[in-house]
Design a binder for these strands. Structure first.
Lengths: 231, 231, 231, 231
DNA sequence: AATGAATGAGCCTTCATTCAT
DNA sequence: GATGAATGAAGGCTCATTCAT
């Protein structure tokens, strides 16, 4: 025996799920609430009734999808918090790639569309939900970079690493869509192989940045020491 | 003394420029030909008169913007063709970052929107115009990688490098828009500094990939030699 | 107490009636859905909401009008099925003329416009709905023609009879429109008088055709008999 | 060496011919000046330049086509003016059927469309040009009807005969269009056979009408004679 | 609480006509 | 005289939202 409350909750859930699918497929503008309602098996007035407007549904659907995505693929990638930073980086990269490539988790595609085609509806959501993830990555990267590297370079590294994950996945997905697989230069056959590549490529990059920074620090110290040391 | 031909060319040009601006700002769907016409100082029927449809204008505007973009920032970045590959890579990265960040060149934003929100109108255009650029980059990367690295890893490297350029620029641009500068973790203050970072980071990454591949090759040879050499 | 279903049915009905009027007056192309909606007391979006498109409304309105027309003027003209064929022909002709001249039944004008200015939207409808009527007429005509008349001449007769009904009515209607009655050579004052004329004119025509055919048959038989009979 | 006058005349002629084709194919509303101009190899402004408006071109094109049609198929059908009325009727019917079925003469289709879908642009033209033809037919019919038949019945006969020619041709043409021949009940295989059918069918009809009228006359006279005859 | 009918603003496109050369 | 560019009015259709039940 279902209470009206439960009915309401179920309809809301169906609408959120349907909205997630359609928004991810077509973006905000090309999505019609008629299609969302239909896929959710609900009335065409249901969206405005339950959420107030298409715009509100949009951000709610994103939060919903993002939470589900994080639950399915924890950001540490299953690596223990006290593992060496190299392994933790690998874990985070794998988690990110899995979140993006998981066909059941559409949050990433929302985000991507939103960045390309800003509605301005997700800016707050981004800061609240995405930032912690990036800071978690930045923190591992800083560990690997050591103390000599300044903040800007650390940010550069973090951005570069995340970008290596995001961009190729986007391109791959787009070019492979439409049924026919596209076997051109953009193709990534194996998520795990690509993850290993990004890790080893980036660890080398990080090491180089670290080396330069440390050399600079030593040089400065020597200079300072020489200046101050000689009477 | 204007001939009708010249008139047409001028109006077409104005429409292309206006279309470039508006499409880049708002994407295909949210752009109205009314706004394009208004910005071009033309009648609302001008778009259909000169181009036939909004869709055709879209792809024509992209070609126009892309050609202008390439002309303003040659893909070699001003580096001679016989310079060492490290410098040529730097040149290409600089050229790419400049093309993306140049506020007068909107082609990149078209492309980015198109990938995020495919209209299907630019697929051919991409393959014809973008591929050569990526192949040019891949070719420098392969030079730096040496002969031991297989094709897939070369592609991974090329994709990673290009991604490091594209993605942060997108995010930076989006978050900085709306008048207020956003001084958060995504910000890139200095294009040139970021270019140098990407080059040194990526050269180290490439060297690492190369080293691994060469070690693998040596190992195999030794194994083979051992197998065949000792009875 | 109106249910939504009843509301829909009423609005649909009003739209069908209004569409019937306007399409019959102006034809498909010159009819605007704005006018139909206005006459039906509905919003301009109502047509697309209830029917999907102007084209669908067109053929639905025709079916609606045709059904109403048949109901108002049964095709046998009130003559019993076992009456002599002359009377049944009279009944059908009267029914046809009444259907055409009835100002409340617009189906005929649709048809006429459609034939003159084909939209291709009614072809199926014609075959499904008009054919049975013509076959009914042809069947009476064949009865009157006897067995000697071949199929082609029977068809000629049927076509000629129906044409005598349709064409003058069309011309009469057109020339009388615009407020001023046109009392020229095309005018038919009295539907019933014209029906009687068509019947007697055509019965004589049919008899002549029948006589010729029977004479031909007798001649052939005699010839054959003569040929075969004499050794 | 062409004078400007000759150029103008030629362009006008091409426009008239092209307009004749397109108007006959598509009707007034669905015909665009652009298509007429294109088919005539003229500028899009040529129609308004040479004729003033689409409407004027429409009626001019009709006059042009009608004159050409009459020239190609003289209304007497090649039968001498002193031939017996039966033969003259046959001549006129043949001429009418030929005019209608001649694929190079589009005037009839104009007319038909105009009647079905009145633009009001041809009403005067009709009265001026069509009436004489119908009066010519009516005059033969009256000859065959004799003096006892009243004016209304003569008109009925004439209308019926002409209708037998017009209507089946229209239907035949429409149903056979679209490339595929339609071998249904409407088909007329042989213009000449149909003409013979109409003549013999109608002569019988005329004879019947005449007989009835004469019987009525005799009856009245007898009655009158009887009335007046008895003292 | 929830539905389905109805709305009206807005968009792309068409096309006869006009304007400047 | 003749052209081709340009115009503006109008039409069909879409869709998020509101209204009445």
């Amino acid at each position: 025996m279902k209470t009206p409350r439960e009915d309401t909750a179920r309809t809301r859930g169906k609408l959120l799920a349907a909205a997630g699918e359609v928004f991810a497929e077509k973006g905000f503008r090309d999505t019609t609430i008629a299609e969302i309602s239909m896929r959710a098996g609900a009335n065409i007035a249901a969206v405005n009734y339950h959420f107030g407007s298409k715009e509100i549904l949009y951000s709610e659907a994103w939060r919903h999808a993002f939470a589900k995505s994080l639950q399915a693929h924890p950001p540490d990638g299953g690596v223990a918090a006290d593992a060496p930073p190299e392994q933790r980086l690998m874990g985070q990269i794998m988690a990110l790639l899995r979140r993006i490539s998981d066909k059941d988790n559409r949050a990433f595609w929302f985000m991507h569309r939103e960045i390309a085609n800003p509605t301005g509806l997700l800016t707050e959501v981004v800061r609240e939900e995405i930032m912690p993830l990036r800071q978690r990555t930045e923190s591992v990267v800083r560990e690997l970079l050591g103390l000599c590297v300044n903040k800007r370079e650390a940010r550069f590294c973090e951005m570069g690493i995340v970008s290596q994950c995001i961009n190729p996945m986007v391109v791959r997905s787009r070019l492979n869509q439409g049924g026919k697989e596209y076997d051109g230069p953009f193709r990534i056959d194996d998520i795990e192989a690509y993850a290993r590549h990004v890790v080893s490529f980036s660890l080398a990059g990080i090491a180089a940045v670290r080396a330069v920074a440390e050399a600079r620090r030593v040089k400065r110290k020597t200079k300072t020491a020489g200046k101050g040391g000689r009477p």
